[in-house]
C-alpha cells in the first residue's frame, strides 16, 4: 500500500463524495490555476434550519488536480453540509489539515485550495443576494483575488488558454 498519503486522504481520493456540478446553486467558488495544476469549483446550496438560520443544504465540487486537491475538495463538502454559513466560515486551513492527516510539506498549499474555494462560494452567495458581507470574508476575497491577479499578470498566455479550455 502506498504510504505517501494518510488514510483520510486516500479514503476521499478513492471514493470522493459530492462530485459534480450543481444546477441551481446559490454560491460558486472558483479557485486555483492551471499553471500550478489545481482547479476547484465548489458549489453550495443554501437553505434554512428549524431556527431559521441560513445553513448549507448541499455542497458539491469539480476538481482538476492532484490527490490531495481531490481529497480535500471531497472532505470539505462533507464537513460543511448542515453547517450555518458562520460555522462554515470558521473552517480554517489548520482544521482541514488536521482532518487530512499527514501531508507532504510541499503539498500543503494544495490542501488549502478547498478552504479558499468555500470562502469564495459563500462570498458569491452573499454578493448575489445583496447581503452584507462580513469583514473577514471580504478580506479573504480580496486576498484570493489579488493572488489570482498576480498569477494572471505573470502568466497571461496560460490564463487565456485556461479560459479557452474551460469555455469548450
Amino acid at each position: 500500500m502506498n504510504t505517501l498519503y494518510s488514510k483520510e486522504i486516500m479514503k476521499h481520493f478513492r471514493h470522493p463524495r459530492n462530485v459534480g456540478k450543481m444546477k441551481n446553486y446559490d454560491g460558486l467558488g472558483k479557485i486555483g490555476n492551471l499553471l500550478c495544476g489545481d482547479i476547484l469549483w465548489l458549489y453550495i446550496k443554501v437553505g434554512k434550519d428549524k431556527k431559521g438560520r441560513e445553513i448549507i443544504k448541499k455542497a458539491s465540487f469539480s476538481t482538476f488536480g492532484c490527490t490531495i486537491a481531490i481529497a480535500n475538495s471531497s472532505l470539505i463538502t462533507t464537513m460543511i453540509k448542515g453547517k450555518t454559513l458562520g460555522e462554515a466560515m470558521k473552517i480554517t486551513k489548520e482544521k482541514l489539515l488536521k482532518r487530512l492527516g499527514k501531508v507532504p510539506p510541499f503539498k500543503i498549499h494544495c490542501s488549502l485550495l478547498a478552504v479558499d474555494g468555500l470562502s469564495e462560494a459563500i462570498y458569491d452567495y452573499f454578493l448575489k443576494n445583496k447581503k452584507e458581507i462580513p469583514k473577514e470574508l471580504q478580506k479573504r476575497h480580496e486576498r484570493i483575488q489579488k493572488h489570482l491577479k498576480i498569477i494572471e499578470e505573470r502568466y497571461k498566455e496560460y490564463v487565456s488558454l485556461e479560459k479557452k479550455i474551460l469555455e469548450k
Binding site: 481520493f13 489545481d38 482538476f64 488536480g65 492532484c66
Partner: peptide, 14 residues
C-alpha cells in the same frame, strides 16, 4: 486532456 498526472499515478498505484 482534462486529467492531472499526480492523481493518475496514485490511482494506477491503487
Amino acid at each position: 486532456s482534462f486529467v492531472e498526472g499526480e492523481s493518475l499515478v496514485i490511482q494506477l498505484d491503487l
